[in-house]
Amino acid sequence: MMSIDLTSLWLSFKLATITVIILLIVGIPLAKWLAFSKHKSVPFVTSIVVLPLVLPPTVLGFYLLGLMRNDSWLGSLFIQLTDSQLIFSFTGLVIASVVYSLPFVVQPMVNTFNNIGEDTVKTAQSIGADKRTIFWKIILPLSKKGIVSAAILGFVHTLGEFGVVLMVGGNIPNQTRVVSIEIFNHVENLELQQANQLSLILLVISFAVILWMNFNNKNTPILT
C-alpha cells in the first residue's frame, strides 16, 4: 500500500516539474510580449491566458478532452507519431497542466516585467544597448525573484490540480493517477488513514513552499 502511495506522489512531482519547465520556456517570452508589446491583440491574448483562472476545471478539461481525443487532429497526429493515444496518457496530462497552470506562471511574470518600468528599458536603450542585451542582461536579472515565484506558484498549483486531471487523465496507476486523484480514491474507499497521510504531506509541502516564498519575496504578490 505504502509503495503505491509514493508512486502517485512521485508522479505528481514529475508532472509539476515538467510542467514548470515547459511553462518557463513558453511563459517568459509570452509574459515579455504581454508586458512590453503595444500590439492591439495584447488584451485579447491576456484574456485567453487568464481564462483557466476563472473557468471551472471541468469545463477546461472538457475542451481539452475534445482537443486530445483519438479522432481529433491533435489526438490522431499523436497516435501517428507515437503509436499510442494522447488521451489518458502522461503526455496528455502534461499538456493539460501547462494550459491549466499557464496564468499562475505568466501573470506574476507580467507583473514583474511591468514593475521594471519603461524608464529602465528606455535608459538602457539610450545608452545604446540592443534589445537582446536589454532582455538578457537587464530585464531577466531584475526579474529573477519574480520568475522564481512564478515557477514555484506554477509547481504548487500543478501539484494540487484535480478536476482537469480527472477529465483528461483518468485514473491509471503510474500513468495518470497523481496524488490528488489518489487521495480521492482513498476517501471513496473509506481508507481515511492513507488519505490523511497523503493530504498531510501535500499540506506541509505547499505551506513550506509558500512560506519560503513569502520570506524571500516580500514584494511579490502571491495571488494575482
Binding site: T123, S126, I127, K137, L142, K144
Partner: peptide, 27 residues
C-alpha cells in the same frame, strides 16, 4: 525613435541589480 544619447533624467535611473562599478562598466 529612441536614439543613442547621453540622457540623464531628473530622477536618475541606475540598474538595481548591478553595483555602481557595473553600471558604469555597462555604459
Amino acid at each position: 525613435g529612441i536614439i543613442k544619447c547621453c540622457y540623464m533624467s531628473q530622477h536618475p535611473i541606475l540598474f538595481a541589480h548591478w553595483t555602481v562599478e557595473e553600471n558604469l562598466q555597462f555604459a
